[in-house]
């Protein structure tokens, strides 16, 4: 549990970062803003509280690893890394521009702080499992955190990795599903049914927790549970709201990807301020 002061600080940080995501989306012409907002509290809790990292040493051997398996959330990830000081956030003015190090899906070889290049769905959980197994093989205590999208769970490779992670008892691996229930073509449950998603991961051998994915305390409590687990990797089904924080984007499939004109930007910022 966070104390009241810490909670306030993290919430303010989350709000400030949402505003920055709006600004980048405005300048870059378009971004996956809906998913960046649904995953947002999970990334904030991990990067500003839970993970062992040092922005001054992005290649520090003993740092915790983070994989944004839903790589299209890169705009949110990039804003956080810039804010933490992995690079000058001013560089984000070039997001999506020709020749920029920042594309929609972040490249680990171009963006400091990015441990794995993602964008193709269904890779992150297996990459995270490999990292976790590598840490264990080399006797290191760093942990690996993976954030997936819910739509991504239609990929068969997610389940190959899910099966293997439980088989290898990768308790140094923790994964989240950003369960916003909307993918590109509409509601996940009418496209390709995922429910009961928690039962599915449970059946594959994971300890599965279902939480409110915008509640920082619940996210950090889940991290504590994962750290204490000795038998099973922990999967968190984080119930979230696509477009969270901006009233006209919330629960709207259309805001999977979109651009903002000046009026929309101002409206978005006003909505974030109220939330």
């Amino acid at each position: 549990m966070l104390d009241a002061k810490e909670r306030r600080k993290l919430k303010d940080k989350a709000r400030e970062l949402r505003e920055k995501i709006v600004e980048v989306t405005f300048t870059c012409g378009g971004a996956h803003i809906g998913g960046a907002f649904s995953q947002h509290e999970i990334l904030v809790a991990l990067y500003y509280k839970a993970m062992r990292i040092d922005p001054k040493r992005p290649a520090w051997e003993d740092r915790d690893r983070f994989i944004l398996s839903k790589g299209h959330g890169g705009v949110g990830h990039a804003v956080i890394l810039g804010d933490l000081g992995y690079y000058d956030p001013v560089l984000l003015k070039d997001f999506n521009k020709t020749g920029s190090p920042f594309g929609m899906h972040l490249d680990r070889l171009k963006v400091p702080g990015v441990d794995f290049s993602t964008g193709s769905l269904g890779h992150g959980l297996a990459l995270g499992l490999g990292a976790a197994m590598g840490a264990r093989q080399t006797g290191k205590d760093w942990r690996t955190y993976v954030v997936m999208s819910d739509g991504e769970c239609a990929e068969g490779s997610v389940w190959e990795a899910a099966m293997a992670a439980a088989n290898f008892k990768a308790t140094n691996l923790m994964a989240f599903v950003d369960r916003n229930r909307l993918s590109l073509d509409g509601p996940t449950e009418s496209l390709m049914r995922l429910d009961p998603l928690d039962k599915k991961f449970e059946a594959f051998g994971w300890r599965t927790l279902v939480i409110d994915g915008h509640d920082l305390d619940q996210i950090l409590d889940a991290v504590e549970i994962s750290r204490a687990e000795t038998e099973r990797p922990v999967m968190v089904i984080a119930n979230t709201i696509k477009g969270k924080g901006v009233d006209f984007m919330e629960e709207k499939t259309a805001w999977h990807y979109g651009g903002l004109d000046e009026a929309m930007r101002d409206a978005a910022l006003a909505s974030i301020l109220k939330s």
Binding site: A161, A164, N167, F168
Partner: peptide, 26 residues
């Protein structure tokens, strides 16, 4: 230092790629 991942080749490649993060040569 040997891992049999079952009949899941895509998973094997990604797991191997992840292992390099710990300095291993899979």
């Amino acid at each position: 230092r040997f891992y049999n991942v079952g009949i899941a080749e895509a998973n094997m490649i990604a797991v191997a790629a992840g292992m390099t993060e710990a300095g291993l040569i899979p």
